[in-house]
Design a protein around this nucleic acid. Structure first.
Lengths: 226, 226
DNA sequence: AACGGTAGGTCTACGTTGTAAACTTGTCAA
DNA sequence: TTGACAAGTTTACAACGTAGACCTACCGTT
């Protein structure tokens, strides 16, 4: 039998570990992602993981990088900068959406992981093409990316439990909390309670989020040269 | 001597506790805010806190509410909706800025705490005045507020250590990490490294952040009726 | 003035977490 | 064959959140 990658081999590797760590986080939330849990999943002692990650933060960083690696950056086209920017940011959101509970880990990895750097560079490139100075492109790019990451982590329903019954309970509790408000003092909030708790369509939710960011960039750009 | 509020009295109360909890978080970060630590600060057994908070999440929620309570919502004026909206969002940021390490706690409290609700209602009010439907106002308002909260929690330097020497070390490490990048592959990132690590002016950083959000709202508004 | 209930503290204890340190062992190069 | 090194194990510890039983000082009642 071949000595390498035999099923009996205990050999772990960081990439596989990060992937299954991400699966745990996706399924049960970041709190459920513990060293012991991940070790057990691989039939290994907890301390074994420390041969591959210096500490838990290092593991979480790897999970963040793992998510960013899924970004499929669109090829440059001849389209205007803002159209291309919209496509780039859409690619970011598309990569994050499958992992609402873990997406927050990417916040601190953008300027570290290679895929995060590629995204950042490309974003700045388009902003500069649009007329921003290098420094302004940096700040605008940063906030745009951060906003979209938050858009995913704050996705209504992301913080909820995995257990469908507990999840429904949580939603009901939130709904009740809003329904208990005085419609006299908070007419708009109570009127939009359903939308605030759970948007009609996730696609629409994300579409609007990206539109807001891109429109903001266009607006600020226009204001700068005025 | 008066029996109430004598200095020897051990009586605690949630408001005082939340305030000093916030002080701990501000000074040393959220990780340093532990039940035992807060109890010690009040010369009290850890379990004493559970007479005032049902669990740690409850305490963190109170800290979030505590921050939101500092929002000084501007009085309505006769100005256009977008100008007033800018003022409202500026008031939010002004309240959050002193607490970059704890501001994230407000994310889940906006639609619960009275001050968060007041902010949300007021924001939606102005958006509706600007021509948004109630549902659109809800979604746009949510993302705007979330973006600004993230703007504060992601404030460069917020995650750094309190110890000035460790802090400087952290900054140096980040700087080195960016400086180590190939200027050939990442020309813009390396060129803007200083700005990305620490913006020239925090006032400018926040000003641009708010402008981006407001410009985005205006832009989306204009697009809706087209 | 005696008394009983209760709000607000204490004490002790448990399970879980991240991880340091010292050890074993399977594998491959020389 | 050997011997070094990478990878996994064992044991152990300190810190965390918190359950549960206890104590006790205070207060309104009679």
């Amino acid at each position: 039998m071949p000595p390498t990658s035999s099923p009996t081999t205990k050999r772990l590797d960081p990439h596989t570990l990060a992937t299954s760590a991400l699966e745990i986080a996706d399924a049960e939330g970041l709190d459920a992602l513990t060293i012991r849990r991940l070790a057990q999943l691989h039939d290994v002692t907890p301390m074994a993981l420390y041969r591959h990650f210096s500490d838990k933060d290092d593991l979480l960083a790897a999970v963040g990088d793992r998510i960013l690696a899924d970004i499929a950056l669109p090829e440059p086209t001849g389209e205007p900068w803002d159209i291309q920017l919209q496509a780039v940011l859409t690619a970011l959101v598309k990569a994050l959406r499958p992992h609402p509970k873990a997406a927050g880990l990417t916040l601190y990895r953008i300027l570290v992981s290679p895929d995060g750097l590629a995204l950042a560079e490309r974003t700045m490139e388009l902003l500069v093409e649009g007329g921003f100075s290098t420094d302004n492109a940096a700040e605008v790019g940063r906030q745009s990316v951060c906003s979209l990451i938050t858009l995913v982590t704050a996705e209504p329903g992301a913080t909820e439990d995995t257990d469908p019954v507990a999840r429904e309970d949580g939603l009901r509790a939130k709904r009740a909390s809003l329904a208990a408000l005085s419609p006299h003092r908070y007419p708009l909030i109570t009127a939009a309670a359903d939308t605030l708790i759970c948007p009609a369509s996730h696609d629409q939710y994300y579409g609007l989020g990206i539109d807001l960011v891109v429109a903001g960039i266009r607006g600020v750009r226009a204001g700068l040269q005025a």
